[in-house]
Design a protein around this nucleic acid. Structure first.
Length: 481
RNA sequence: GGCGGCGUGGCCAAGUGGUAAGGCAAAGGACUGCAAAUCCUUUAUUCCCCGGUUCAAAUCCGGGCGCCGCCUCCA
């Protein structure tokens, strides 16, 4: 079954055909390391982690590169504000980024290059552009000449005239065209710098990604990704730099994820309406956040709210409860069962889930639909649980684990996940687990004595404190509402 | 102003020509001492509005309304 992906360059879904059969080169723009990451960064990185996992699951050999932009104006200004060197800032936020991504259960990319470790490659690329007449020096700066590059703005589907009509940019007199952008910036006194043919300076914003992607993936590679907000100017400029220098197509498929919104508005630093990953993980399990972000299509906007996170948590719990039920039955040694309609349905759903999952994912990574199929299976599991054979339950478990491995959700031991959620919720309660257990014991006594007035009283009291009791064959357990 | 996108039940969200997945919430039933959990059933004759194409449209075309994004650092 062919994978189809939405390519920003063509504006439509295309069949994904790797340049080299069986192999994929994928570059994703990482972060500029000057502050903590927010949920928008979480989405971008989780989306491409999911894509990376799925490509690998399809048997492709993926070289995944995600950079750190560790020298830039914002890093310098942050360093100046804090009175430290830019390295202190970049190293601190690289460590924070790594920690956040690890908590979000992201696989490590094949390479994670840093801009400051590729200054020579960057200088070489700028020199190449100057030699070919696509760039010019102006004082200690070097600019890219957008008018020389015919395909400029092809990705964002605009033209230079329109851009100027709405331009709010201050015109730099040293530029030949207002849209020309810096490849190299001369250092002002006190700024960090590297020696270059144009004097002491540092790379412009976009050049590091062109230089590093081509170094690790070659001059033409398969996938380049990032948030929609990078289409212009960042990716547009990357294309210009790379293609002007090499004369070859830079990237075959451009993939862009949608934004995380707050009240239907883009979450962003400048609007100040953002939540950091750390803040959210104080209140929700990392897997819940992943599940939430994968519950809508990666290109759609997704609205971040407490209610939506809670819904996601309930949904994920539903899946885990079913899986925990499977584990319990397997542990109890589910023996042979007489044939039943429930088991037959589960067998059909269980054997078909991999194909349905692949079909959804092959359609431009439709994780929302894929999760819908998973919920379908969950219903069949719940229905068939008392009737299914151990073999069938084990098969279903394996199938779900395969899917979980691609999405990075439902990948925990079910009982531990449920325990984790329970502990998180309990820690926010004013009542201790011991007290609850004590009350449950008292209620059991009352029920034994048919004193339902007292037993209901206990249950209602606990309910008022958000504790829900669950009576089962093995006795009473509880959960936080 | 230019360019791009979106508008599906109370909420979230799939579906891009063949007669509306799934989740959350809600209601009824089974189960239960009563509940909860679980299971079953129900909840959009209709997909922002108005035209058009078609045997057939949420899906295509035209117009309108509303919302959002990019055009400035941004995942």
């Amino acid at each position: 079954m062919p994978l189809r992906v939405y390519n920003t360059l063509s504006g439509s879904k295309e069949e994904f055909v790797p340049i080299n059969p069986g192999k994929v080169g994928m570059y994703v723009c990482g972060v500029t390391v000057y502050d903590d990451c927010h949920i928008g960064h979480a989405r971008a990185n989780i989306v491409f982690d999911m894509i990376y996992r799925y490509l690998r699951a399809k048997g492709l050999e993926v070289t995944y590169v995600r950079n750190y932009t560790d020298i830039d104006d914002k890093i310098i200004s942050r360093a100046n504000r804090d009175g430290v060197s830019y390295q202190v800032i970049s190293e601190r936020y690289i460590a924070e980024f790594d920690r956040d991504m690890a908590r979000l259960m992201l696989l490590l990319p094949t390479f994670q290059p840093k801009a400051t470790e590729h200054i020579q490659e960057i200088i070489a690329l700028v020199e190449r552009l100057i030699a070919k007449g696509f760039a010019y020096q102006s004082d200690a700066d070097v600019f890219f000449c957008v008018e020389k590059f015919d395909d400029y703005l092809r990705l964002s589907k605009r033209n230079l005239e329109d851009m100027q009509a709405g331009a709010r940019i201050e015109v730099d007199e040293r530029k030949r065209h207002p849209m020309d952008f810096a490849l190299w910036k001369g250092a002002k006194p006190g700024e960090p710098y590297w020696e270059s043919p144009w004097g002491q300076g540092r790379p412009g914003w976009h050049i590091e990604c062109s230089a590093m992607s081509m170094k690790f993936l070659g001059e033409t590679f398969d996938i380049h990704g990032g948030g929609k907000d990078l289409i212009f100017p960042h990716h547009e400029n990357e294309i210009a730099q790379a293609e002007a220098a090499t004369g070859k197509p830079f990237v075959k498929y451009w993939l862009h994820n949608g934004f995380v919104n707050i009240n239907a508005e883009k979450m962003s630093k400048s609007l100040g309406n953002f939540f950091t990953i750390k803040q959210v993980l104080e209140r929700y399990d990392a897997e819940v956040l992943r599940f939430f972000l994968l519950s809508s299509h990666y290109r759609s906007p997704i609205d971040f709210s407490d209610q939506n996170l809670k819904d996601a948590e309930l949904g994920l719990e539903r899946i885990y409860k079913a899986l925990a039920g499977v584990d319990e039955r397997l542990a109890a040694g589910a023996g042979d069962q007489p044939p039943s309609a429930e088991e037959a349905e589960l067998a059909e759903k269980g054997k078909g889930i991999a194909a349905r999952f692949a079909e959804a994912m092959d359609d431009d990574f439709n994780t929302a639909l894929a999760l819908g199929h998973l919920f379908d299976l969950v219903r069949s599991i719940n229905k068939a649980l008392p009737f299914a054979s151990a073999d069938l339950l084990a098969l279903v478990k394996r199938e779900v684990e395969a899917i979980a491995g691609v999405l990075g959700v439902c990948d925990s031991v079910p009982a531990s996940f449920l325990q984790r959620i329970k502990e998180r919720k309990t820690s926010e309660m004013e009542i201790s687990a011991e007290e609850i257990e004590q009350l449950i014991a008292e209620r059991a006594e009352a029920r034994k004595a048919k004193n339902f007035k007292r037993s209901d009283e206990i249950r209602d009291d606990l309910l008022a404190r958000n504790i829900v009791l669950l009576d089962g064959p093995q006795g009473t357990s509880w959960k936080v509402k």
